[in-house]
C-alpha cells in the first residue's frame, strides 16, 4: 500500500521558508492564497488577464517583502492589502478614467433577498462588469473595508465623491441583480 505523506506547514513555517527563498514554501504560499487573491484581483481588473497581471505583481511584492511581515495580525489580510494596493496602483498607472455616474436611471427595489439566488461567481461577474467608478469604490468600501477617506486618498478623489459613488455603485449592483434574477426566472 502506498501512502501519500503530506506535511502541512503552518503559515509561520511558510513565511520563514519564503524569507529564505525556499521555492517549496513559495509554491505552497501561492497555492494557499492564489485562488482567493485572484478573486480580489478580478474584482478590480477589467478582465482576467489584467487580474493575473495584478496577481503576479502582487505575489512578487509579497515574496520580496515577506520579511517585513511582523507576524502580527492576519497574514491573509496583509496579502489582501498588498493585492488591493497593487490593483489600485495599476489603476493609477493606467490613468484609468474614474467616471462619476448618474444614478437617475436606477430604480432599486429590495435586493437583499435576491442575493441568495446568486452564486459568488455571479456576483463576481457583476462586480467585474460594473463601471470602473463604481467598482473600485464598492470593492474598497463594501468588501475590503476601507473608509471613504482612505478610498478618496487612494483614488485621488474627494471623500464625498467616494460616498456618492459607493451609493450609486450599490444601487447599480442591486439593480443588476434584480435584472439578472428576472432573466433567470
Amino acid at each position: 500500500m502506498w501512502y501519500k505523506i503530506q506535511y502541512k506547514m503552518n503559515i509561520e513555517d511558510l513565511i520563514q521558508g519564503c524569507i529564505k527563498e525556499d521555492r517549496v514554501c513559495q509554491r505552497e504560499l501561492y497555492k494557499l492564497f492564489a485562488g482567493k487573491m485572484m478573486v480580489v484581483c478580478l474584482r478590480y481588473a477589467k478582465d482576467k488577464m489584467e487580474a493575473e497581471d495584478i496577481l503576479q505583481e502582487g505575489f512578487i511584492k509579497i515574496y520580496d517583502n515577506i520579511s517585513k511581515f511582523r507576524m502580527q495580525g492576519s497574514f491573509e489580510g496583509w496579502i489582501r492589502r498588498i493585492m488591493v494596493n497593487t490593483a489600485i496602483n495599476k489603476i493609477r498607472a493606467g490613468k484609468r478614467h474614474f467616471e462619476e455616474l448618474d444614478d437617475r436611471m436606477m430604480k432599486v427595489s429590495n435586493s437583499q433577498d435576491v442575493l441568495d439566488n446568486f452564486s459568488a461567481k455571479d456576483i463576481l461577474n457583476l462586480i467585474s462588469e460594473m463601471p470602473a467608478g463604481y467598482k473600485y469604490v464598492f470593492n474598497m468600501f463594501a468588501i475590503e473595508g476601507f473608509s471613504h477617506k482612505e478610498i478618496a486618498d487612494s483614488l485621488g478623489i474627494e471623500e464625498a465623491s467616494s460616498r456618492s459613488q459607493y451609493a450609486k455603485a450599490k444601487k447599480y449592483l442591486q439593480q443588476k441583480l434584480i435584472e439578472l434574477q428576472k432573466v433567470k426566472l
Binding site: R23, Q26, R27, Y30, A34, G35, K36, M38, V39, L42, R43, A51, E52, L55, Q56, F59, I60, Y63, S111, Q112, L115, D116, F118, S119, A120, K121, I123, L124, I127, F141, A142, I143, K170, L173, Q174
Partner: peptide, 26 residues
C-alpha cells in the same frame, strides 16, 4: 446586510489563476 452578504460570498470563493502563473512569478 447587502454588503455583508456579498463579502461573505466572495470571501469563500476562489478562482484558479493560470497554471503557469507561479512559474511566471518566479
Amino acid at each position: 446586510l447587502f454588503e455583508k452578504q456579498i463579502s461573505e460570498k466572495l470571501d469563500q470563493f476562489q478562482v484558479a489563476p493560470s497554471r503557469d502563473l507561479f512559474n511566471d512569478i518566479m
